[in-house]
Design a protein around this nucleic acid. Structure first.
Lengths: 354, 354
DNA sequence: TCGCCGGTTGTTATCGTTACCAAGCAACGG
DNA sequence: CCGTTGCTTGGTAACGATAACAACCGGCGA
C-alpha cells in the first residue's frame, strides 16, 4: 500500500468526518501552512495557489477548527457565556436577543445556560463556561445563594457583567432596570388619582428586583405623606395562579383595596384575572362590583386588551441586553477597566393602556 | 535565576491568566499526567496525591481547558448549535428552554444564534457552529432561501434536526406542530356549529406554518363538502394592528363572516379587537350587532377572559424543543440513524374558553 | 558577476490535554 | 530466591492550527 492509497482512502473517509488543513493541503497539492495562510486572507500567496486551496476547501467541505485555533497563544475563543434564571421568560428572551445582537456584531457567539434560579446550577454553568474559555460572562444572577462563585478569582480572568440584578459583595459592572423609579412612578399615579388602599403583589424581598420595587412602592407613599398598608402587601407569588389567588384573597377583605400594583407581569396578570372573575360573578348575581384600578411593572403580550384600567411600567429588555454586552466588550477590546465597577440603571416609562 | 524563581513568577502571574495542568502539577509536586488522571476520576492514583492535586486546583483556580480537550481524538466538544429565527419570540424562547433542558441533562451546552429569518445569516451561523465542532444542530429554518447550506455534506458530519418548520429538499429528522390537524379541528368546530361564512386571517403562504394552517382550514371545509370562501381569506398580517384592520374590513362586507379563524395569536387578537370595537359602536348607536364566533391557533394571555366566544388551538413549545433535542441525542449517543428521516408532528388540543 | 531584497513556500515547534507505553515498586506464589 | 502480577507514576507523542524561522527564487543595483 502506497502513501497515495492511504491518502485516497482518507479522502474517501472524509465524506462524513471533519477534514483538516492537512487534508486540504493534500487535495490542493500544497503545504498545510499555505492552506492556513489562504484561509487567513491569502497575504503573500500566489493567486493560482489560493484558487487551488479554495477549490480544495469547497471539495472537502472544510471548516477551520476553531477549538484548535483558540488553543494557540494570543488567540481568543470568540465565545461569551450567558446564564439566565429562566430563558423562557419573554423578558429575558428579549434581553438574550439584545446580547446576541451585540455579540454577533463583535464577531462572538454566545453559550447560553438556564440557571433556573438555582445558585448551584449557576455555579456549574459558569465553571463550565470558564472551562470552554469564554472571553467574558453575562449573568442574570439567581436570587438564591451568595455570589461566591462570581468572585473574580474564580473566573479565570474573564470579565463579568451582571444584568437585571445586582449581587451583594460582587463588585462588577452591572446593568439594572430602574426598578425603584418605575414602581414609584406607577404608585404615584394611583395615589394621585386619589387611591389610598393600594395593594402590592410581588416577589419575596430576597429577590433583588422584588425588594427594589417594594421600595419604590413605599417611597411613593411617603412622597404624599402616607404609609403603605401592610395588610395589602402580598409577597412570594411565583406564577399567575398564585397571584390570582392572592388577589382574590385581598378582594375578600372587609375593606378591599381600590387599586393594585403588580410588581411583575405574572402578578399583574393574576390580579387582573381575579378582578375579572369577581366582576363576572357579581354581574351574574345582579350585583355591582367596584372598579379596581391596576398598575404593573413590566408590560406583557396583549396588555392593551386587558379588561381593566391598566397602566404599566415599560422598559426595554433588548436594551438591557445590548448595554450589558456593550459593557462587556469594552472590557474585552478596550482598556483594562481602570476605574471601579459601573452600575447603570436603565430608564423606564409609565404607559396608560386605556 | 533558578527554575524555582521562574515557577514562582509564573504562579504569581497566574492570578489573572488561566493555569494549565502543568501549573497544577508544579504546585502539587507531581507530573501533569497525574493531574490529568486525578481530574478524570483519580483511578489508580494514591489518595494522598489526589488530595494534593485537588488542593493545587483550588489554590490556582484551575479549570480544565475543554477546547484543548476536545482536540484529542475520540473526544466530543459537548456543544450543540441552535439557530432560531427570532430568539425574542416567546414561543421560540420556550422552545429554547426545552432544548437547553435536554442538552443539559445530556451534559451538553448550547451555542445559540439568531438568524432573523435571514438565510444568509443562518448559513454563517451554521458554518461557524461546525467550525466550533458542535456535535449536532437544531435549526428553526428561516422562511427565506433554499436549504442548500443545510445539506448533509456541508455539516461536517454533525446531525441536524429541524424544528417548527420543514425545508423542502432537506431530508432530516424534523419536529413540527400539527398545524394542519389543529387548524382543521378548530375550523371543523366552527362548521359543526353551523357557520358557513368563516373568515381566515393568517400569514403569507410562503411561511411554512402559514401554508399548513390554511391547508387545515381548507380541508375542514372539504370534510363537510363545502368550499372555503376566497373573499374571506386575508393573508400577510404581521401584527395585531394589521389583523384588526383586516377584520374590520371583513366586517364591512355586504355579507360579513359569522365566524373567524386566526392562524396565529396576533391575528386572533386583532380579530377580537375589531369585533369588540364594532360591537361598541353598534351599542352606542342603539343598534344590535351579530355575534361573531372566534377560533385561533396559539393561545395567549387573557384568552380565557376574551369578550367573545373563543376556542384556541393549544400546543407546547417546550415540548417541541425537548423532542427536537431528544431526537438529536438519539443520533449522537445511539444508533447511527439506520432508516430515513423521521418527521414528528406534535399533537395540539382544541380548547373552548367560554 | 555577486550580494541583497522582497515575495513565496515549507519546516519546526507550540498551544493544553491525555492515550499509550515504559518503568519502578511491593506483594505473592512456586 | 526469583519471576510474575498489579498498582502507581512519569515520559512521549499526537490532536489541528499557525507564528516564527528557514529556504528558495527571480530581479536589481553595484
Amino acid at each position: 500500500m502506497t502513501s497515495e492509497d492511504i491518502a485516497g482512502g482518507r479522502a474517501a473517509a472524509r465524506r462524513s468526518v471533519n477534514p483538516t488543513v492537512h487534508d486540504v493541503a493534500l487535495e490542493a497539492g500544497v503545504s498545510p501552512m499555505t492552506v492556513s495562510r489562504v484561509l487567513s486572507g491569502g497575504k503573500n500567496v500566489r493567486t493560482e495557489l489560493q484558487d487551488k486551496v479554495w477549490r480544495a476547501v469547497e471539495t472537502l467541505g472544510y471548516h477551520r477548527n476553531e477549538n484548535a485555533r483558540s488553543l494557540r497563544p494570543g488567540h481568543r475563543s470568540g465565545l461569551v457565556g450567558v446564564t439566565i434564571t429562566n430563558i423562557a421568560n419573554p423578558y429575558y428572551a428579549e434581553m438574550l436577543r439584545g446580547v446576541e445582537e451585540i455579540a454577533s456584531a463583535n464577531g462572538r457567539r454566545i453559550l447560553v445556560g438556564n440557571s433556573n434560579e438555582d445558585a448551584d446550577l449557576e455555579r456549574q454553568l459558569v465553571a463550565d463556561f470558564i472551562g470552554r474559555r469564554v472571553e467574558g460572562l453575562i449573568v442574570v444572577p439567581s436570587s438564591t445563594g451568595d455570589g461566591a462563585h462570581l468572585q473574580g478569582e474564580r473566573l479565570g480572568g474573564a470579565p463579568l457583567v451582571l444584568a437585571s440584578r445586582a449581587v451583594a459583595g460582587v463588585d462588577v459592572d452591572t446593568v439594572l432596570i430602574d426598578d425603584v423609579a418605575g414602581a414609584r412612578a406607577a404608585t404615584a399615579r394611583l395615589l394621585a388619582e386619589g387611591h389610598r388602599r393600594i395593594a402590592f403583589l410581588g416577589n419575596r424581598s430576597s429577590v433583588f428586583t422584588g425588594r427594589r420595587r417594594l421600595d419604590g412602592f413605599t417611597l411613593a407613599h411617603h412622597d404624599v405623606g402616607v404609609e403603605p398598608l401592610a395588610d395589602l402587601i402580598r409577597l412570594g407569588q411565583q406564577d399567575v395562579g398564585a397571584a390570582e389567588h392572592a388577589m382574590a384573597d385581598l378582594l375578600d377583605l372587609p375593606q378591599p383595596p381600590t387599586a393594585v400594583f403588580g410588581a411583575n407581569n405574572r402578578n399583574t396578570v393574576g390580579a387582573i384575572r381575579a378582578i375579572v372573575a369577581r366582576r363576572r360573578s357579581a354581574d351574574a348575581a345582579g350585583a355591582t362590583s367596584a372598579e379596581i384600578r391596576v398598575a404593573g411593572f413590566d408590560s406583557f403580550d396583549f396588555a392593551d386588551i386587558a379588561p381593566v384600567r391598566l397602566s404599566v411600567v415599560d422598559h426595554d429588555a433588548g436594551d438591557l441586553g445590548r448595554r450589558a454586552a456593550a459593557m462587556l466588550f469594552e472590557h474585552l477590546d478596550g482598556a483594562p477597566a481602570a476605574g471601579s465597577a459601573r452600575v447603570v440603571e436603565l430608564p423606564v416609562t409609565l404607559r396608560d393602556l386605556f
